[in-house]
Amino acid sequence: MSHTAHIPSHRKPRRSASKLALRAGVAGGVLGTIAVAGAAGPANAEPVTETIEMPTLNADLSADLSSAVAASAEATQRIALDQELQAQEDAAAAKAAKEAKTAKAEAERKAEAEEAQRKAEAKARADAAAEAAERASRSSERTTLSASAGSSSSSDEDGGGSSYDSGQATGSAAAIVAFARAQVGDAYVMGSTGPNSWDCSGLVQAAYRQAGIELPRVSGDQSSRGTSVSLDNLQPGDILYWGSRSNSYHVAIYVGGGMFVGAQNPETGVVERSLDYDRPSGAVRVL
């Protein structure tokens, strides 16, 4: 054999360059082939090729994996929806409980207000009824006393009446005293002349009218009428005054027994009091 004949080398040729190719599949399967090609050192060396194959997922496994991924995503979405619905239900329940509590408190407050109003109305009706009964009693008393006073006055005119003393009023004085006492408990109202409220001079004027005597309207003019009398020599029906006689600021009626009746002030109304309660400045006798 000629020494120039081509004899394949048994040595593994040196690789001067390498090539790598990777092919991957989708849908769960991966197919890879790596090819390595090397050229021999000498120009006339035969190339050596090595092939490595990667495992491949078949179509059934890929489909199962896709289904599992889709099912997992659907389950996650369903859990999220369930949690959102539960949160909405909890919020709605809390809101309903709060509204129910508010409605209950409002109903209780309204019921209490209505009960208080009913009690107030019942009390007002009872007070009105009691006041009406009291006024009716006073009216009856006034009628009886006026008739009695008229009879006594007639007796005096005929000469059958008794003289005055410190504790018993007769004749015209009895009518004045009876009327004044019948107004005890009425209200004091500045400028009022009855029949259920008075000021001091309005009461004195109305009382004297029962005896047929007209007095001026104001206290200063009333205390200027008649004659002055000592506080130690008073008789029922005398007019008591506070201040000077010509410029008094308050008047009342002496009713006997050391007592007087007067419309004192808005706090007390018409009262019967002892002379010591508020000592008058003087007195006049008009009868």
Rank of each mutant, 00 (worst) to 15 (best):
G171I: 00
V255I: 15
A263N: 04
A283Q: 10
A35D: 15
P195W: 00
G194T: 03
L20F: 13
Q210G: 07
S197V: 06
I79S: 15
G262N: 12
T56G: 01
E53V: 09
M54G: 07
S18L: 13
A87V: 05
E134N: 10
A133D: 15
D199W: 03
S153M: 10
G28D: 01
G282M: 08
F260K: 02
A149M: 03
A178W: 00
H6P: 13
E115Y: 08
G32S: 14
V189P: 05
V189D: 02
A93G: 10
A73C: 06
V218N: 13
A149T: 02
A97Y: 05
G29K: 00
S162H: 09
P195G: 08
R118G: 13
Q264T: 14
A35P: 05
V48K: 12
S219M: 01
P266T: 14
R135G: 07
R138H: 03
R142N: 07
Q117S: 14
A17M: 12
D156L: 04
K123E: 15
S18P: 07
Q88H: 10
S9P: 08
E112W: 02
L231W: 12
T4Y: 09
R209T: 04
N265C: 11
G212C: 08
A211M: 04
K12R: 13
G32V: 13
K95T: 13
T4R: 12
R285L: 09
K98M: 12
A122K: 11
A283G: 12
A35L: 15
S62Q: 02
V286H: 05
A24F: 07
Y208F: 15
S152K: 00
G257A: 10
I52S: 14
I34A: 15
G282C: 09
A130E: 13
R285I: 00
A180F: 01
V69F: 09
S152D: 14
R279T: 11
R78V: 09
A207G: 06
P280K: 04
R273A: 15
A71D: 15
V184D: 05
K110V: 09
A63G: 10
D127A: 13
S219Q: 01
A129T: 15
S66Y: 03
L287N: 11
K95P: 02
G257I: 03
Q168C: 09
I213P: 06
K119H: 12
V177E: 04
A124W: 06
R125V: 09
A39I: 00
A37F: 11
S192A: 15
D278G: 12
T143S: 14
S244R: 10
A113H: 00
T268R: 15
D186M: 06
A124D: 14
L240N: 07
A80F: 05
V286D: 08
L57T: 01
V177D: 04
